[in-house]
Design a protein around this nucleic acid. Structure first.
Lengths: 164, 164
DNA sequence: GCGAAGTTGAATTTCATTTTCAAGATGCAC
DNA sequence: GTGCATCTTGAAAATGAAATTCAACTTCGC
């Protein structure tokens, strides 16, 4: 039988946070920047979610841990995390930049509901293969891709069929 | 032998412009709006390109035909065109909204060079099939998708291998 | 042609993002 | 541990694309 989990921490273990911090610290050193408590707090908070967070949303979460950390620092730290591969920007089409963690995650894609803004993630091996194939064909050195499907989720379809 | 083309008009025939205008006019009538010379000029100018135009770029082109047409009108007309399916928004990741025509075009995708911003279009049947498949799986009514590949084009790779 | 309703475009507002700057940390050299 | 150059921080300001406002103008159904 599996060992019972005794903590309620969401989605990520202490071990993983430590590893991610090491990645960040190595990156900071490499580009001549310094490690700070703020950056660590922001990284930790970021890792503890699985949502697609805007800077503003992450800032709100971070403030629960340390009310002194400003929006600007969260903004800048997200850029840093993106630089060292721990986060990546993901654009739904609503005019707000969002980030998600990339640490230990397979490449995945999103399906977004254009009514309520909710999203589900899905995996598709084929899409990665397509990236390679198309890149070869047009002589691009490909680095990444985005694939989003837009539609209306079951929930919202139910709502609109029995209007208030 | 093919008949020699005697005009220099790019990419689209008078016939197609007329058809597109009819689509727009029908849409305007349906939602209770009016047709104007400005809207027709903007549509025509838009159709005469095959690029991915920002509002600003299209505004510049429109001004060559009628210097009195303002940015705001171009902006609003692009939204109208998107509403009636003649244009669709396409977001490269540079913070600027772009539109491309959708009239008589198969669903297609983009590969964008992150160095110089140039892009190529490609077609892939499989991606459309994936949209259907994933939609069924998660009970979404899918409407559209975006698929972009980012990388570095051959041109830019050459440049960076022999730096100035 | 009349008049209600929509349109136009300059100017303004909005709002997420990005930059600035002065005060405060950090970390390497000693 | 101390000094000091350099980086960081966060409030505030700047930026810039997108969206809205408004008074003058146009369209279109009658």
């Amino acid at each position: 039988m599996l060992q019972k989990r005794i903590d309620d921490q969401p989605t990520i273990s202490r071990e993983m946070v430590r590893e991610a911090q090491e990645i960040l610290h190595r990156h900071l050193k490499r580009v001549g920047l310094k490690q700070t408590a703020q950056r660590d707090t922001i990284l930790k908070t970021f890792l503890e979610t699985r949502d697609h967070l805007s800077t503003d949303e992450l800032h709100r979460l971070v403030q629960k841990k340390d009310a002194g950390i400003g929006y600007t620092t969260v903004y800048r730290t997200l850029k840093l995390l993106a630089e060292c591969g721990l986060a990546s920007e993901v654009a739904f089409h609503d005019g707000i930049a969002r980030y998600e963690h990339q640490y230990n995650r397979r490449s995945h894609h999103h399906m977004v509901c254009t009514e309520c803004g909710s999203s589900v993630e899905f995996f598709s091996q084929e899409v990665g293969e397509l990236e390679q194939e198309i890149g070869r064909k047009y002589h691009y050195l490909t680095t990444r891709h985005t694939f989003q499907i837009y539609g209306i989720c079951e929930e919202c379809r139910k709502k609109s069929s029995r209007p208030v």
